[in-house]
């Protein structure tokens, strides 16, 4: 379980043996992908692992190595070291998935407040159904949480993703999500004539300054933007209802 969760972090994992090719790669349960068409984040291949050798090698002197996506394939001479094959596969996969670096790129562009550090919990068993909390668990929580917020940052800064008809994105008025005050929601907005949740105000800004279409509450872009906006106000006291 833990192992699977960790390997899933890097979408690019070279399976060990044909059977595990699929198992190692398909295991994401509820993984937050970047909303929209972009591919999920790609880490580096686990370089130490042996590559899976497909049974369908073409010639005796070369082998086809199949990536866990079941599609990306490279043909290499027999005896090629695993790391070299991994590198080639990675390059091939990157070529086909130009958006794969989205997470690193987004984080370089727009700083994100870090998610809480839970390393103090390592070694404890409480509340866990699958044993002691490992450093990998803690790392996974943080990475996955920050990934959702990063996906939100990407939408927040991109007029196209927001569906703006006038080229306007949220950061134009809210750099680093400043002045979004998520800690004050829910609150009564007289202009809306009711109590608004954060997502109502996000939608209001999408419809008005951004001139786009309101998003459904469970739209991945809405979920991601809520995550980003909340992340950026880390440390602020919750004060629902505050104007």
């Amino acid at each position: 379980m833990i192992h699977r969760a960790i390997v899933r972090r890097s979408a690019l994992v070279i399976g060990i043996g044909a059977a595990s090719v699929i198992a190692a790669c398909g295991g994401g349960q509820g993984a937050e992908r970047p909303p929209s068409s972009a591919q999920s984040g790609a880490g580096t291949p686990a370089s130490g692992e042996a590559p899976s050798v497909s049974p369908s090698a073409i010639t005796p002197s070369t082998v086809d190595v199949l990536l866990c996506d079941g599609k990306t394939k490279v043909n290499v001479p027999q005896g090629t070291p695993g790391t070299a094959i991994a590198g080639q596969l990675m390059a091939e996969w990157m070529r086909k998935n130009p958006n794969s670096g989205w997470e690193a790129e987004e984080r370089e562009r727009h700083t994100l407040q870090p998610a809480a550090d839970n390393s103090a919990l390592v070694g404890q068993v409480e509340g866990q159904t699958y044993g002691r909390i490992t450093p990998q668990d803690v790392a996974l929580w943080k990475t996955e949480t920050e990934r959702v917020a990063t996906a939100g940052s990407r939408v927040f800064h991109d007029a196209g993703e927001l569906g703006s008809t006038i080229g306007v994105s949220c950061d134009m008025c809210h750099p680093h999500a400043a002045n979004t005050h998520p800690e004050t929601y829910p609150k009564f907005q007289a202009q809306l004539g009711r109590v608004a949740l954060l997502r109502d105000m996000i939608n209001w800004c999408i419809e008005h300054p951004v001139r786009g279409k309101a998003l459904a509450s469970d739209d991945p872009r809405m979920r991601a933007m809520e995550a980003y906006i909340l992340a950026q106000r880390k440390g602020k006291t919750l004060e629902y209802g505050k104007h």
């Binding site: 370089e108 750099p175 680093h176």
Partner: peptide, 10 residues
């Protein structure tokens, strides 16, 4: 586009 983002750290 990079320069146009006020909060773009690149």
């Amino acid at each position: 586009q990079t320069v146009a983002g006020l909060d773009n750290g690149v």
